[in-house]
Design a binder for these strands. Structure first.
Lengths: 110, 110
DNA sequence: TTTGTTTATAGCAATATTACGATGAATGTT
DNA sequence: AACATTCATCGTAATATTGCTATAAACAAA
């Protein structure tokens, strides 16, 4: 099938999964880390930084932009991409809620 | 291709991506949340809780177990699954390092 | 031993993802 | 205008993921 049955899960569960999915590829992790490191970016840099072809990088950037985690503005012939800080903070809250579930009550039954 | 070029990324980037990938499906998010909620579990419960077929749940559990996020012990005819607390904490540290990257220095250039 | 219960595995069809080459669109340079 | 540069999109091939049915395996109960 290859198609997740999203309708049987809560909005929050689907949201967590969507964010996680976009982090589920090392190229996108790498892109985000690089954007954090240099604070602003031109796509060409990324193609050199990461060893993938330009259309591949462009595709990954599109996914990140689609989820709102980065924003990009055209500057002449190049495009300036950077982290969308407000949305990153919102995403982080959602993910932290999931990661920080209370572990103290878990009995080591197994 | 469908195949990520992991060799061109750092171990840390690949590790983050692997953890994120497993959270990239709402069924697995749901399973983990349920395990946190009740602190111990029998697989049959999950099949009722989540609306997917038993083999599908079993497959998702396998992926979670493979990454070490849950552990399962056979108890008679059923299997008791629960959160692997030590590994969960380790995973959380890795993910937090990624999520908590310093956002304060980012200039709103775009 | 037969039967039922529970979970895992095999095999499959449908869809998604990843990556790239070729090409197009937009802008800058000469 | 002609050309170069940069990035996006299209089309395609290879592989991965999801979910199911059918079935096996392991154990308990009768």
């Amino acid at each position: 099938m290859g198609l997740a049955k999203t309708e049987m899960f809560t909005d929050q569960q689907n949201e967590i999964a969507l964010f996680a999915k976009v982090f589920g590829h090392p190229a996108r992790v790498s892109i985000l880390q690089y954007l954090f490191k240099i604070n602003s970016c031109i796509c060409g840099d990324l193609v050199n930084q990461i060893g993938l072809a330009q259309p591949t990088i462009s595709q990954h950037l599109k996914e990140l932009k689609h989820l709102g985690l980065i924003k990009g503005n055209v500057e002449g012939t190049s495009v300036c991409y950077c982290i969308h800080t407000e949305n990153w903070i919102k995403m982080k809250e959602t993910m932290l809620q999931f990661l920080n579930q209370d572990i103290s009550k878990i009995e080591d039954c197994c």
